[in-house]
């Protein structure tokens, strides 16, 4: 492996062609998916594929770091923020700036063509391979470089990371501009606003299920909207309490009466005994 060669193994070629398609698809999905969460997942997929490519290129440490740091930490941070901002909010894909898509497409196309031309023109038909460099182990080789030649860059990067952490805290920190509301004030406000003072009705009362997505029924049989979380209602995940459900309810009541009657009978029997 010490001499330069111009071809990789067939296995690697097969792997490349398969995974390259996956990576490109993931990248395209990242750009084109309407929902941010889908984009994030597609990007995570692309990154895993890239991790595999790193491994195939002999960058074992980076491959693992790619999976752990990028896919594991960074992408999860992304997902976290997406959830914070609103997971359901979908981008409207209609362009608002006139000519932006066209220009972006033209620029992208030109850029790609030029890059490809550049790479095609470069004398890159031979490669050395990492056999020698990785002979003492990839991690050890990297460590030797990082802690010797690149030690200052490394230290500065560490400082950068700490600064970034502090910066994130500063940016997201909210200064309280007024004293925290006391319980007394909150309750007074609630009464003054005329909101529900008593606890909200619990879901599932008189319902077949006591699950959170089934509204409680009022004595006249209509569903009590207040008993279900507004989030579920907004998502349309409230379970329907229709005629069918009322019929089921009636049947249930019937059954329970029977059960109660039976219970009574048994008790009477027991009492009779």
């Amino acid at each position: 492996m010490s001499t330069a060669s111009s071809l990789t193994s067939t296995g690697e070629a097969v792997q490349f062609w398969v995974l390259a398609v996956v990576a490109t698809g993931g990248a395209l999905a990242t750009v084109l998916m309407r929902r941010a969460v889908h984009s994030a997942l597609s990007l995570a997929g692309t990154m895993i594929v890239l991790a595999v490519f790193y491994l195939a290129n002999g960058a074992y440490f980076l491959g693992i770091a790619q999976i752990v740091v990028y896919t594991g930490a960074v992408m999860m941070l992304f997902l976290f923020v997406v959830m914070l901002v609103g997971v359901t909010a979908a981008d409207s894909l209609r362009e608002t700036i006139r000519g932006q898509r066209l220009l972006a497409g033209l620029c992208g196309l030109g850029f790609a063509v030029l890059l490809f031309a550049g790479i095609g023109n470069a004398a890159l038909h031979h490669f050395n391979g990492l056999g020698q460099a990785n002979s003492g182990g990839n991690v050890e080789g990297l460590a030797a470089l990082i802690f010797t030649r690149y030690v200052f860059a490394f230290e500065i990067t560490g400082a950068l990371l700490i600064t970034a952490a502090v910066g994130a805290m500063v940016l997201t920190h909210r200064e309280r501009t007024e004293p925290a509301p006391t319980q007394r004030r909150l309750s007074e406000e609630r009464v003054r606003k005329g909101e529900h003072i008593t606890p909200l009705p619990a879901p599932g009362t008189y319902a077949r299920h006591n699950a959170v997505d089934v509204p409680a029924l009022l004595p006249d049989g209509t569903p009590a909207e207040l008993s279900v979380s507004p989030t579920l209602r907004a998502r349309g995940q409230v379970r329907d309490v229709s005629e069918k459900a009322l019929e089921d309810l009636a049947a249930l009541e019937q059954g329970s009466r029977k059960y109660l009657a039976r219970g009574n009978g048994e008790r009477q029997k027991g009492a009779g005994r």
């Binding site: 700036i97 932006q100 220009l103 620029c107 030109g110 030029l114 031309a117 023109n121």
Partner: peptide
């Protein structure tokens, strides 16, 4: 994003010039 287009186009022009 409009400014980004200019940057991207500028980068493309730089590559073209280099080539």
């Amino acid at each position: 994003r409009s400014y980004a287009v200019s940057m991207f186009g500028g980068a493309a022009v730089l590559i073209a010039a280099t080539l």
